[in-house]
Design a protein around this nucleic acid. Structure first.
Lengths: 343, 343
DNA sequence: ATAAATAATGCAAACGTTTGCCTTAAATAT
DNA sequence: ATATTTAAGGCAAACGTTTGCATTATTTAT
């Protein structure tokens, strides 16, 4: 049996409450006593039992990460891994633990969250995705559980905690960057109506074109959810012609990578023939050839902010439903250049 | 305050112990009583408090996932994400929860695991990586905590539970596949001495070449941990010449993808000029152009097996340190073809 | 019908903490 | 010197379960 608070109390010649308060560094225990107790703790190798603490204090010091229902595909983006890692890191620093809520179906996921929440296993939740009519959000909201979202909420926007980038502006900035380089015909690769992030980036793209006085051409926008054959056909129609677009805004680094390969089939080289900019600034952007110009979204800050605010909510030191918008930044690398530049 | 077992007991007119036993479907409670109790539970919306249960039963029904100390890079492989997802899924099915242990440094990670283990927050651990002289493994082993590894252990191999593929044979099979297609000069891309998986695949590669009576050329093996410039230089030396290798075994899909791009700089096309086979059968293998021939390692089975066995260990229904080796399978797609084939 | 065995349920301690309140000792004010 | 305040620490209840043992009700054997 492990060392308990009682063993410590006995050996130190104090009451268990004194040990407990020493643990919390309570001011009502004298320094001298605390030091003594702490020393005994060290000698005995005492470690608090978190379960007992949880039962007594009704707090678990753990936050649950809500992953999207995994349809395989979306789930293989390193994005989520970076999020998990960032949240872990931030939680570690605040002495919180991290649990994962996931499921193959929405029902399973909900059940998993309910078990955690009502079973007293998590103090709060961080939702890593944003979708329309999400029963998970409904549940969290109805039960008034502390939760935060990384991303832009579809619902309860003014009534919940969330941390996000300004993806509309990011989309606009990326597009403007290409416009500045002289590109006029710019495609948007990777539309996906399901994802709020992409929706906003696309809006930014459209706005930038509009402000530049360019005409919107729906054929320039390619839906990534299309069946493979249609997807490729669209790309061929768009690029395997004389007046192909010279600029591409890709909604994700991975999409950019795939696009680059597809274009090489038509003999188009990056950035000589086509400039491409994408989002996330993932390892692929750094490591691919050519290195990708990509929009950095500061995932680490995103997660750190979220954790910090959610913990504030959990510990009631903060009660407001604040929105936090983090800046983005274009990481200029090699995949974009001025139109018709010699190289 | 939430509904407790007492509320249920009161309303059902039984003792709390009866409710508790109903929860466990104990045979010493009559069916009639159980039904009654269950109905009251439903009416009241009762959900057991996992913390209290944990305290009383000294079991937490959660398993901890040990992620490698994150140096960013390795951490962006979808591999880990798939593992997390698979473990989550398997745990969900067995009504276990999942917690994450991670850290930026080895000390942090160890601390995190200790808190979980000694704080009574996890019944067992799954280690997702394998490295030499790992203090984490030492700790788990010393403390005789239930743990399992996904991968091949460096130490305590005969004394611990692990689930893995036969990566040596997988490497051999992949190489043989290329040999069969008539390739004679075959490179291995992505050596990394740190990773046990890759080490074994490389051994398999060497063995296959040896058995085919081919001479080993160290220049054919490219270390992925090399600084970027040296890495590219090596590749150029190897491929930007007349008698370039016509086959490549890449230690991971991502490495294959990168290699394909680099080769396109020298005008080499896949699979026309060079055939490439890789491992993991990730989404990149399916979605890239050309689709990659890749070795499927059945990550879902890997995780499911691990979880199932670890839970056996935790619940003491199994006490043996078994090794489980799962089969692999070459998923033939478009990135390999017979040498000199017309296409 | 009575004793013995069995089935069904209840009682209460235990799990390891936290925390409100009470007690004691020391310090300060009168 | 006594009354009052403050500081330090102890007592014991509470958190919501599980579980060994005792008790009661029901069968079965005699």
């Amino acid at each position: 049996m492990a060392i308990t608070i009682k063993d410590v109390a006995k050996k130190a010649g104090v009451a268990t409450s004194t040990v407990s308060r020493t643990l919390q560094n309570s001011p009502s225990i004298s320094e001298k006593t605390k030091q003594n107790v702490r020393q005994v703790m060290d000698e005995l190798g005492y470690r608090p039992n978190l379960t007992a603490r949880g039962l007594a204090s009704k707090t678990t010091q753990t936050i649950g990460i809500v992953l999207p229902v995994s349809e395989g595909k979306a789930f293989q983006n390193t994005f989520f891994l970076r999020m998990i890692r960032g949240i872990s890191k931030a939680c570690n620093e605040k002495k919180y633990m991290v649990a994962i809520a996931s499921g193959m179906t929405e029902e399973e996921l909900l059940e998993s969250i309910q078990t955690m929440a009502e079973g007293g296993r998590a103090d709060g939740f961080i939702v890593l995705y944003s979708k329309k009519d999400d029963p998970i959000i409904e549940y969290l909201h109805q039960e008034k559980l502390p939760y935060a979202m990384i991303g832009k909420p579809y619902k309860y926007e003014n009534d919940m905690l969330y941390v996000d980038n300004d993806n509309r502006t990011a989309g606009k900035d990326a597009t403007n960057y290409l416009l500045q380089l002289g590109h006029q015909k710019i495609a948007f690769m990777g539309e996906d109506r399901e994802q709020m992030v992409i929706y906003e980036r696309l809006e930014g793209y459209e706005q930038a074109l509009k402000e530049a006085g360019l005409e919107m051409d729906p054929n320039l926008i390619i839906d990534v959810t299309l069946p493979e054959d249609q997807y490729q056909e669209k790309i061929q129609q768009l690029f395997d012609v004389a007046d192909f677009p010279t600029g591409i805004v890709a909604s994700d680094d991975l999409i950019a990578l795939n696009t680059i390969y597809l274009l090489s089939n038509f003999g188009l080289k990056i950035p000589k023939d086509v400039s491409i900019i994408s989002f996330n600034n993932s390892i692929f952007a750094e490591k691919s050839q050519p290195e990708l110009t990509s929009v950095e979204l500061h995932i680490d800050s995103l997660t750190a902010q979220t954790v910090s605010q959610l913990i504030g909510l959990v510990e009631k030191t903060q009660t407001l439903a604040v929105k936090t918008i983090l800046p983005h930044q274009i990481m200029v690398r090699q995949s974009c250049q001025e139109i018709n530049a010699d190289s």
